[in-house]
Amino acid sequence: MTHPSRATAPLEELPAEVYVWTQDVYHAPRDDGRTVCGMRMRGGRRHDAAHPPLRSRPCRVCFTEAVVEKHTPSD
């Protein structure tokens, strides 16, 4: 995975789909065949962002804390 300082397209909003390479972490895809953190998208799957795999978490580079907080409902 790419170092956080090399993120190529910081998110300002959540994407409609997420990319999953392992069941542990999901990433924000770009149109050029890579994720925001720079990982190549091959061999994984895209999922609806509203329904990522159970027990998975967002990539800390693709999904910055500010983006996730902005779009997470609060009680």
Rank of each mutant, 00 (worst) to 15 (best):
M1H: 14
M1D: 09
M1N: 02
T2Q: 08
H3K: 08
H3C: 05
P4K: 02
P4W: 01
P4S: 01
P4A: 03
P4C: 00
S5H: 10
S5K: 03
S5V: 03
S5R: 03
T8C: 08
T8I: 14
T8V: 06
T8D: 08
A9I: 02
A9F: 11
P10V: 10
P10W: 03
L11M: 12
L11E: 12
L11Q: 07
L11K: 02
E12M: 06
E12N: 13
E13H: 15
E13G: 02
L14R: 07
L14K: 05
L14P: 00
L14D: 00
L14T: 05
L14W: 01
P15R: 06
A16N: 10
E17Y: 08
E17R: 15
E17Q: 15
V18I: 14
V18M: 11
V18E: 04
V18T: 03
V18N: 05
Y19S: 04
Y19F: 12
Y19W: 11
V20F: 02
V20M: 04
W21E: 13
W21F: 11
T22G: 12
T22R: 13
Q23R: 15
Q23F: 01
Q23I: 00
Q23H: 10
D24N: 12
D24Y: 07
D24C: 00
D24T: 07
H27F: 06
H27A: 03
H27W: 08
A28I: 03
A28R: 06
P29I: 12
R30D: 00
D31Y: 13
D31L: 12
D32V: 06
D32H: 07
D32T: 04
D32F: 00
G33I: 04
G33L: 06
R34T: 15
R34V: 12
R34H: 10
T35I: 05
T35A: 13
T35V: 09
T35G: 08
V36F: 14
V36L: 15
C37E: 00
C37I: 00
G38W: 07
G38T: 06
R40T: 11
R40W: 13
R40D: 14
M41N: 04
M41K: 15
M41H: 09
R42D: 10
G44M: 10
R46F: 15
H47M: 14
H47P: 06
D48R: 13
D48V: 09
A49G: 10
A49Y: 08
A49D: 06
A50S: 14
H51W: 11
H51K: 07
H51M: 07
P52V: 08
P53Y: 06
P53E: 07
P53A: 04
P53T: 04
R55P: 00
R55I: 10
S56I: 01
S56T: 02
S56L: 07
R57N: 12
P58K: 05
R60N: 03
R60Q: 07
R60F: 03
R60C: 12
V61Q: 01
C62A: 06
C62W: 06
F63S: 02
F63P: 11
T64Y: 06
E65L: 13
E65A: 11
E65P: 01
A66E: 15
V67I: 09
V67G: 05
V67R: 13
V68P: 01
V68Y: 07
V68R: 07
E69R: 13
K70W: 04
H71A: 09
H71V: 11
H71I: 03
T72H: 03
T72D: 01
T72N: 04
P73A: 13
P73H: 04
P73E: 09
S74C: 14
D75H: 11
D75G: 13
D75L: 15
